[in-house]
Design a protein around this nucleic acid. Sequence first.
DNA 1: GTCCGTGCAAAAGCTTTGCAGCCTT
DNA 2: AAGGCTGCAAAGCTTTTGCACGGAC
Lengths: 134, 134
Amino acid sequence: MRKQEPLKLRQSKQRNRILELLRSTGSHPTADWLYDQLKKEFPRLSLGTVYRNLSTLIDQGLVKKIHFGSTFDRFEANIQPHYHLICESCGTILDFEMPIYDDLNQQAKQLTNFNIRHHKLEFFGMCESCNGKG
Amino acid sequence: MRKQEPLKLRQSKQRNRILELLRSTGSHPTADWLYDQLKKEFPRLSLGTVYRNLSTLIDQGLVKKIHFGSTFDRFEANIQPHYHLICESCGTILDFEMPIYDDLNQQAKQLTNFNIRHHKLEFFGMCESCNGKG
DNA sequence: GTCCGTGCAAAAGCTTTGCAGCCTT
DNA sequence: AAGGCTGCAAAGCTTTTGCACGGAC
């Protein structure tokens, strides 16, 4: 998370591909996964470059970082407000096509002096695939 | 998160105090904060001991780990289901005295084949103190 | 006496950063 | 030509772990 004034960005094949990859997958990948994928196209790619570009894309508002209790961060290019479904068995994260309950904020505001702006909602359970195995 | 069979636990002053401290504060502290506090009572305390005991207490179900997007974990001894208020300005985390909306799970279940068991809800905004400053 | 808990130190794992050279504008 | 971008490597930070000793039961 940079605190400086915005830089004059230039095009970079690496950054473009990172964004494309993120937009083409629903898997909320890690930096390392992106690195492994792009290593095929850019054999000399470094993880530092992946992290730096993810940081830049986040500053631009094109990518979001997801924290959900794992040891490593995940990233997504779906910047529309949405909830997540998280499988407690295999760790899969899915975007949840469920309407945002803005009303929750209103209800919450009546119970606290906290100035509530938004909320984050995640559902946990078992995905279809894991459910079948159990 | 240990996967083994439960061990026969013994009493330990360090572990008892960690739990007491967690129960006496609403600040959802980090392992490092607990370490700093208890270093006064146990001058030879090590961070490893704090982490190991937190892990043990979590296994016992007496403590929960909170992940919320920082680089370090926080812990709490409030094991009742509850939501959190998180200040985006100062990082403070408060337990939110708001009823759990179990109905959310029911509504969600109608929209997916995912086997939903529970959800996590966090509200973000500005705490009273930070609100006054802005 | 047994064996769990501790302190110490090293290691692990993810992320950030300094630097010199490259590439976009 | 200017300066953002890259690869490489080192460093940073939080958390985990191996080991021998100490303490609870």
